[in-house]
Structure formats: C-alpha cells, structure tokens
Design a protein around this nucleic acid. Sequence first.
DNA 1: TTTT
DNA 2: TTTT
Lengths: 123, 123, 123, 123
Amino acid sequence: MENTNTMRGLNKVTLIGNLGKDPEIQQLEGNIAVAKFSLATTEQFKDKNGQSKTETEWHTIVLWRNLAELAHKYLTKGSLVFIEGKLKTRSYDDKEGNKKYITEIVADQLIMLDKQSNVQVDE
Amino acid sequence: MENTNTMRGLNKVTLIGNLGKDPEIQQLEGNIAVAKFSLATTEQFKDKNGQSKTETEWHTIVLWRNLAELAHKYLTKGSLVFIEGKLKTRSYDDKEGNKKYITEIVADQLIMLDKQSNVQVDE
Amino acid sequence: MENTNTMRGLNKVTLIGNLGKDPEIQQLEGNIAVAKFSLATTEQFKDKNGQSKTETEWHTIVLWRNLAELAHKYLTKGSLVFIEGKLKTRSYDDKEGNKKYITEIVADQLIMLDKQSNVQVDE
Amino acid sequence: MENTNTMRGLNKVTLIGNLGKDPEIQQLEGNIAVAKFSLATTEQFKDKNGQSKTETEWHTIVLWRNLAELAHKYLTKGSLVFIEGKLKTRSYDDKEGNKKYITEIVADQLIMLDKQSNVQVDE
DNA sequence: TTTT
DNA sequence: TTTT
C-alpha cells in the first residue's frame, strides 16, 4: 500500500446485442481457451424527415478461459447477450503484407439474455 | 406508440484518460463542427512475477457540434477527461488503395476532470 | 458557450433484472404520466465455504412520460428489463409523521429483454 | 461448469463527484476495514424558463478492505472521485425504534481524480 | 501521442 | 456536507 498507484484510467464497453454467428473457440498452449464472435448492436432512430431508421454496428468480442468455454457451450448465432469489457486495438499483417489494425472488445462479464440460455459469469 | 420498436441494442463506451495531442477541429458544410483527438487510457497491473506493469490503450474520439467546440476551446494535449459514447467502425481507402477499417468512439458526453478546465456538457 | 458550465458530476445506474409486480401508472396534472415498479437484480456467488448463494436486491424504478407509458403498456410482473437512470433520494413523512428517505432510480433508458416484449426507448 | 447459473442480474452504479466530508473508517472484527463517506454529484441544467440551475444529489459510499484503507489514506473533504459499485439497501432501527431503510453504494472501483491524490484501485 |  |  505504501507504493501508490498513479493511474487514472477507465476503459469500459457495455453492449447488448445478438451474435452474428456461432462463437469460434480455440485452445491455446497451456490449455487456455479463447473464443471469438461478432455481435450486432442495433439502434433505431428517426432521420431528419421523421422516418424511422435502423443502424447496426458490428463488434468483435474476445473471451478468455471460463468465459470462452461458456460462450462455446451456451451461445449460438442469434443469441442475445449483455457484454462488459475493455477496448483493445492490435495490429497484424494481412496476407498481402499490409499492416492492419483491429479493435476488439475483451469481455470480462457476460450475461445471457435469452430464456433458453440464461447464464451469467464474471471473469 | 402503436408501432412497436423491436430494437434491443446497447452500444456504450466509458473512458477516463488523457489526450495525446490537442484536438483537431474541422467545420463541415452546413457549419457543423467535428473534432477529433486520441485518448490514452492507462491501466496498471501486476504480471505473473508480481511486477507492476503499465498498459496503455489509445482510442480515437470523435465529437460533433457543441461537444466539438468545447473540446476545441478547453481541451489540450494532456487534459484528463471522462468520455461516454458509442463505438462506430467505418472503412476508408488509404493512399495505396487498401481498404482500411477504423473504430472510433463518437462521444455524447464529455466531463473535463482537470482543475483548470472543468466543463461538462451533454450532446 | 461563453458562459462555461463548471459541473463535473456523473450519476448513473445500470440494472438488468425482473419486475416484482406490474407497473403502477398515474397521470399527474398537465397530463404527465409517471410509472413505478420494483425491480429485482439477482447475483449469484460462492460463500467462504464454497457454497453457491443467491442475493437479491430490490430497486424502485420511476419512469416519466413516454417511458411510463411504455412500461405500462408492455411490462408486467416478471418482465426482464435493462434500465439506465439516475439515483435520486427524496424524503417524505409517513402516516405516523416520521421522516423517511427513499432512494429511487429515475430511468432515462429502458430496454425490454423478453422475447415477447422487445421495445427500447430513450427519454 | 455443468451446473448452469441462471442469474441474469446487473446492479451497477457509476458516479463522479466530491466528498462532503473526510471518510470515516472503522476496523471490524477480523481486522477488516470499512470506510464511509458521502459523495455529492452535481448536475447543471436549464429550467423551463431557460435559467441555469444546479441540482445536487448525495450518495452514501461504503468501501471495504483495501479500498477503505485507500479512501482513508488519500481522500479528504472535497476530493473528486470516480466510483463504481453496487446498490444495496439495508434496514435498521433508529433510536426511537422506527424501522429505517438506507440505500448505499458499495464501491468496487475507485479512481481519484484530483491532481494531488491520483490513485486507482480495484477491489 | 498522454498522464503519474 | 462537496465542487466550480
């Protein structure tokens, strides 16, 4: 406690949406599970002509360990979930050797909101 | 009210961090202001050897209209702010003609947390 | 814009839970609707003996205008909802003349999470 | 993992505000620290006559263990903090034997936002 | 590219 | 009871 922490950061994302596909799960070395899926959050609003419009945003969700296994076990395409996590941007080189950036949400909480799959877990 | 809305989406980001540079502001047609800056959120944690480590994440913040003007007026490199907004991913073609994606946070609330610049505004 | 706002406050509550009863709605003067219901948020955790335990917290939710009407129209006992709002504590005198305090959540966003009643509205 | 959890609850409060007084700390049996303070969140808005008005809400914050000790060590009357926690309502009997209810926020994250006291800790 |  |  003597050594005070001097950070003042907060990095939090909160989403409610539907899975675009079934989660993909991998086992990394050390037997660590990681799952991924894309999540659609849909917003409805009125445009300037008063017409109702829908806008969908797609997010890449990454889950580790227990959360990965739960996602794999209980979630499928179309499942409605609440996700809380952190934004993380990483870079990689694509097949043509171009540097690409991708922003992902690393989940630390998952609540399944469908009647048939109501499971909540914290990391 | 008769026409029920069937959306169940939530797309929310909450950040506390420091500006990496002064905000850049532009006036779009129709006299609409848009500002941008990058925001660093820093997290401190202990690695598996018990050593304290720092991890910084950079976010691109986009502000419209009033919020853009406030950012331009009161924020500078280093300012500490609280931001609430939405994730939005858009694509563009870079100079070499490669399709690129960028994920930005479109702010709808800004709280300035420095003693010298304490202004809060909602969109 | 010249007159800068000097507030630095944030007061936000985010809940996912089930209604304990059907909402009660009233029409105040000026034809303003106000609805109330209590919402249970349930948390599951392991106690120090490793036994799984459930803890339920009850919240009083207050909704105004459109949100009140939506709640009245679509929500019933047991409905699963996401609520975002503000904490507000007010005092009143009970029948015996004792001063009482009550803390309520004044909703400004409501997302209905049941399959049968999926409506989202912002204030 | 076989035994699925059926909870779908979320109970989260997020506040930015100033301490009304220095925190009070107690040591409970088992050497567990608990601290309390009240926090003011202030909101500025325009009333229907267009006049700027200020509304302050007071919250009771409860912190346990490490967070209690940090609050005691670094926070004083007037400190600006970000708090994340849970709502918890409990009852007690006052001196006259009346049953009273109090709603508190049990903090699980604290970020100190003053230049002079910038410490962040998770429970 | 920030902050402590 | 706070802060600007």
